[in-house]
Design a protein around this nucleic acid. Sequence first.
DNA 1: AAGGTAGGCAACCGCCACACG
DNA 2: TCGTGTGGCGGTTGCCTACCT
Length: 213
Amino acid sequence: MRERSIKREVKPMKAMNNVSSKKELVNKGAWTSEEDQKLAEVIEIHGAKRWKIIAAKAGLNRCGKSCRLRWLNYLRPNIKRGNISDQEEDLILRLHKLLGNRWSLIAGRLPGRTDNEIKNYWNSHLSKKMKQKEKQSGVATREGCNINGQQNRVEEKANVERMSEEENTSKGVDDSEINFDVDEFFDFSNESPLNFEWVTKFLEMDQGWSDIL
DNA sequence: AAGGTAGGCAACCGCCACACG
DNA sequence: TCGTGTGGCGGTTGCCTACCT
């Protein structure tokens, strides 16, 4: 839809902000600024761990999960919101081609962006772009396989594993010694942001497999 | 001006993996 | 080894808002 220039104010939702039931007394729905403030204060003191304890200490009738989500997606420092640049968009597209719907891994590659934001951006913008592209080209791309999420995940994992095998084969590494961890492989914490070299490299490899298969 | 509609996004849900006793 | 608790992740839901008729 049209670009929203100003982020909407968080208002308590009619139904959702109410206590869900008399039994549980758990608050749900949109967060208020007071809740945000309390949560931030508690996290400053205790750190962003043990969410159940944080939820209790903050005195919010929220579950730990809800607190964690709020912190990670909204309150955490250095979060970038909106205005995803062309470069970032390109990177998301490339990473999605490589990894599938592994939003947390993709987000890890985009400093200041959250998995939720990227997932939303993909669902509302990029997936449509991809479909349009597909229509125009008339060629079934791997994106077309995303209808079945489970199948797609298996395929993406297989791709990553193939990458690993190919690398090891070229180095003459014995298969029995392979202990490949996808998450470790995609730990970019030590790399500079928006570095496309590695993506290009592996997309080239990806093309190589496509040719073989 | 008012109602309808589609898109955007925050937040919840359910499942899974891991840690710990 | 098993059971339980907790955190993390992806999918989905539903409210809000801008635009359309």
